[in-house]
Design a protein around this nucleic acid. Sequence first.
DNA 1: CGTAAGTTTGAAACTAATCAACTGTTGTGG
DNA 2: CCACAACAGTTGATTAGTTTCAAACTTACG
Lengths: 262, 262
Amino acid sequence: MAGKGSELSLVWSRPPGFAAGAVACESSGGESPCQLCSAHHLSVCGVLAETGLRRLNAISDQREFTPGETLAREGDPATQLFNITSGVIRVHKLLPDGRRQIIGFLFPGDFLGLATGDRYAFSAEAITKGSACRFSRKAYQRLLVELPELETSLLERTANDLRIAQDQLLLLGRKTAIERLASFLLDLSNRDRRAGGEGVEIALPMTRAEIADYLGLTTETVSRVTSRLKARGVIRLLTMHSLRIVKPAELAALAGFETPPA
Amino acid sequence: MAGKGSELSLVWSRPPGFAAGAVACESSGGESPCQLCSAHHLSVCGVLAETGLRRLNAISDQREFTPGETLAREGDPATQLFNITSGVIRVHKLLPDGRRQIIGFLFPGDFLGLATGDRYAFSAEAITKGSACRFSRKAYQRLLVELPELETSLLERTANDLRIAQDQLLLLGRKTAIERLASFLLDLSNRDRRAGGEGVEIALPMTRAEIADYLGLTTETVSRVTSRLKARGVIRLLTMHSLRIVKPAELAALAGFETPPA
DNA sequence: CGTAAGTTTGAAACTAATCAACTGTTGTGG
DNA sequence: CCACAACAGTTGATTAGTTTCAAACTTACG
């Protein structure tokens, strides 16, 4: 019962569980770009029929990005929305003195930019190279009015992202360092499983510093806690950026998963 | 530029800034209950025209609550939605060992229950006595399909709540105890100002323990930090549950408001 | 290969939590 | 209306978990 485990997107993401959203998609070129898009089934556009897809495609263009590239800057006018089709993005907020909180990591199928008013409330930067469908916010909003299934889908996604954010509030407000890291690894595992993987071998495209800024810790603490999990035989590092979950049950227990006592 | 300051609702709340949402309302009785409702202009129902209001009203009933009463329990089937019309609600999540994170406080006009799948992802309990419009989730969702302006309004609210949650992630992940309390008091001040007040005399309907669980601290720390603010002349306690902000600028500086350096 | 960036590990410092005592507030019944 | 009990809040002393500072080690890359 209870807790589902938190996720990772947080600024528009994956399908809330049932119906998928619908935004627009990429392709490697060709006549029907969206249907060839490898992220199509994960994306908001997944719910759109032929007609809707075509209209969405008409207002989108393709944007490639390379590591370190900025897609959105906190405080700038929020003119563009993105649907990630490949690669990984990090989304963060800063305090005036430079302290950083990473709000979420975006993967293919995740949507970027709607948790925003007139200006971006966060910055978004590429961690890996990748690509995204880009929309003008205005055109997108106009299209929303005419494609109610798209709006419904976005509402579901937003509600889902809100749920994810609330799980993360519990993590940041009340969990210990080891619980935070365990929760994070389980999230990655669940994500991999939903993407069709085994959820056992986990890729970590982000650096330790980025994990730290996501979990409200320091690099050193992330490193120490990782070592502890390794020493307890719960995980095994394969490379610097991938690991294997050896004892999933123990990891879940450590994560203190959101299962209320009552 | 930049930061707007975080808010307090987080599980469906106040108007995102421009258009208000629309759900349904309360009244003290009478022919046109919604229009007499004191929370009407703050609520999602605020955007609905006569017809929509009537339909919404048809599927709602009135629910009074007293301090300590539970409106929703984490893990239970999410069958009911609420629009708060008076009083204050706290929304929280628990870890198995009882650690609590308060996700938000809900005030009149705030909406409760949509950041949820089939089951509530949080518990909601009354802090004060009050009242709410209650809807069956199913009936509400059916109505959403037929009232697009309601759905649009909900989407805006959800996006707004997501933004608020993300501000709180920054607070919990990166701010110090004094910055957290200062941010909290400023949020309350802003809320009061938007409700037509001066934002100077602040009501604190919640206990220190509840503030602590909202800010990821302990009661003792909240008390100590409050004393420090008092000693510095930034605030003055009027009663146990109300205070005056004496130096708003200093309070804002302490809050480290979300203004990125760049 | 060599340099820079990223990661790990150790020691010291610090913030907030915990434990504990005391004070203030609230609400109830004599 | 006061006394008292129960609860809420404050303050102090100590502890613990995480950060900070520092150095060594590893990996990635030009």
